[in-house]
Structures are given as C-alpha cells and as structure tokens.
Simulated scan of single mutants.
Amino acid sequence: MSNKERPNQANTNSEVTPTDTGYTFTDDPWIRWRNTWRYLTGGLTDEGIHQYIRGRDARFEREDCHRCEKERDYLLQYSPIVRFMNQKITALGGDLHKGNIRCQSCKEGRGGGFDPNYGILLCANRPEPVEDRLAHEMVHAYDFLRFKVDFQNHDLRHAACTEIRASSLSGECRFWREFWHRSQWKLTYQHQECVRRRATISVSKRPNCKDDVEAAKVVNEVWDSCFADTRPFDEIYK
C-alpha cells in the first residue's frame, strides 16, 4: 500500500470526544429545567456548574441589574449602616451616590469592587445581600480617604488591612450567615475565622500576590492591629 493510500492514523487518534458535563446549552424551557435539576442535585461536573452559572447570569442579567439598582437606592435612603458609612465618607470629602455606585453582571467569584476614580461596583448576579456588599465596599472607600490606603500600587499589606476591616465591619461574617449559608458551624471564634478566610481569598486575587500562602502570610502580619480597628464604628456593628 502506498503512503497516499494509508489512512491518516495520527489524525484519527487525535480525535477527542467532548467531555459530558451534564449541562446542555439550549433555550428550550424543559431542558433548562433539567439543567437546574441537575445543578441542584449534583448531576453536573465542575465545568457543568460553571456553564450553568454563566448561562443563568446571561439570561437574567437585565433583571438582576434592575433588582440590584432598586436595592441600592433603597439602602442609600434607609439602611442604617449604609447611611452611617456614607455620612462618614462625605465628612472626609467623598461623594458616593447612585451615579457612582453601579450594578452590573460580573464573572464568577467576584462580589464587587471599589476604585478611587470610578466609585463602587456591585455585582448584580451574586446571591449575597446587596447591603453587605455595599457596606463592604464603603469600608474600602472610607479607608482610602481616611488612611490613604494604596489602591493604585497594590501594596499587599494595605490590601490585607482593608479587606480584614471590610469583612469584619460590613456584616458579611455575622454568625447566622456563616452558620446557615456557608455551613461554618463552629461556635467559637467563628467571626474571626470568617474574616481571616475572606480577607485571605481577596488578597490572593490581587495581581501581585503569588498565591494563597503569601496572602495568608500578609493577613497574619497585619491581623492584630487591623482587626482591632473598628473605625468609624465604636465597635463591630453587626
């Protein structure tokens, strides 16, 4: 048999069957319901879970953003912690309002962000309460104005300190949220462990942080002074 007559064995062997993630891309309501059922009952692979979340976020982006904006407007007017933080930020020369507190759909794993030049971003597709996320970012805004926290040069010690304070003071680490929503069932030092865990995760995502080991090291270095600092509150609010 000549070379021309031989099948291309290399090409035949290189064919790869796509991995079944359990998720089906579709607009069909029945199959979408099946995707949801598989998601809730553990029938999706890790990649299938990512595909489900991305599909859900894309489908409900407009509704999520509208809901987030309504909650933001309500909180700015009626939430005690948001109103208090906004007063303190205004006293330092800041100006946060619904024009620079924006809602949009974000990639997985992100809850929001603060940028001194643009204001606050709230990720509308995250399930956590908007009040906690807004208070978290307002602590960052306060720290930038009050303590000149380095958000531009990415100083990891500055990042660790403001993340510790934001997680501790915003309410996102209160006992029942950890207990019921994150399956953290320890009865002692739960708040401290939540703050340390979430601060370490946030610092590890900074571009100039090598890994979670370095993030944990930096958090530990500044822990005592930053966790004890509850300004502008007299104590941890909630």
Rank of each mutant, 00 (worst) to 15 (best):
L122D: 06
E63M: 03
T24R: 09
R165Y: 07
Q190Y: 08
R182N: 11
R72F: 03
Y78G: 05
E63R: 08
D212E: 14
F144Q: 06
T26G: 12
G43L: 01
W33D: 06
Y52K: 13
A166K: 07
A215D: 03
Y142I: 12
S168W: 00
G22A: 08
D73Q: 06
Y142P: 03
Q51Y: 04
S204W: 09
D95V: 10
C194T: 04
T162Y: 02
E178I: 02
N3L: 14
T90A: 11
S225T: 15
S168M: 05
F147G: 01
T41L: 00
A166G: 12
Y78V: 04
G113C: 10
N8A: 07
C194H: 04
A166P: 11
Q190C: 09
F233H: 06
N3I: 14
R32V: 08
E178T: 07
T188H: 08
D115E: 12
R182H: 12
S204R: 07
D115P: 08
R177P: 09
E172T: 06
R146L: 12
R72T: 11
C173G: 13
H154C: 11
D224H: 06
A91S: 12
N13V: 03
C65N: 15
Q190F: 10
T19H: 03
P80D: 09
C209N: 02
T17D: 11
V219C: 01
E63H: 11
S2Q: 02
C68K: 13
Q184D: 08
Q190I: 05
R102N: 15
V195N: 00
T230E: 04
L92Q: 02
Q9C: 11
D143Q: 09
N8T: 07
K107N: 05
E108H: 07
G48P: 10
D229P: 03
D57V: 08
S105V: 14
I81K: 15
N13H: 10
G171P: 02
P207H: 03
F151R: 13
P129G: 07
Y23H: 14
G119R: 04
G112Y: 10
D46K: 14
A228M: 01
R133M: 09
Q9P: 03
W37I: 12
V219G: 02
R165P: 09
I164G: 05
I81F: 00
L134M: 14
E15F: 15
I53M: 12
P232F: 02
R83N: 10
D224E: 08
M1F: 13
G112E: 05
L96V: 10
G42F: 01
K148Q: 15
L121M: 09
K210N: 06
E163H: 09
Y142D: 12
A215N: 06
C209P: 07
F179H: 13
F227N: 12
V219P: 03
M138L: 13
C68P: 01
D27Q: 06
V149M: 12
G99F: 11
R165C: 10
S183Q: 14
L169N: 07
N3K: 14
E214F: 02
L122W: 11
F227S: 10
R83F: 09
P127A: 00
G99M: 10
E61K: 09
F179T: 09
Q104S: 11
C65M: 15
D229Q: 03
F175T: 14
E214L: 01
G94Y: 00
Q192C: 07
D155G: 06
E15W: 13
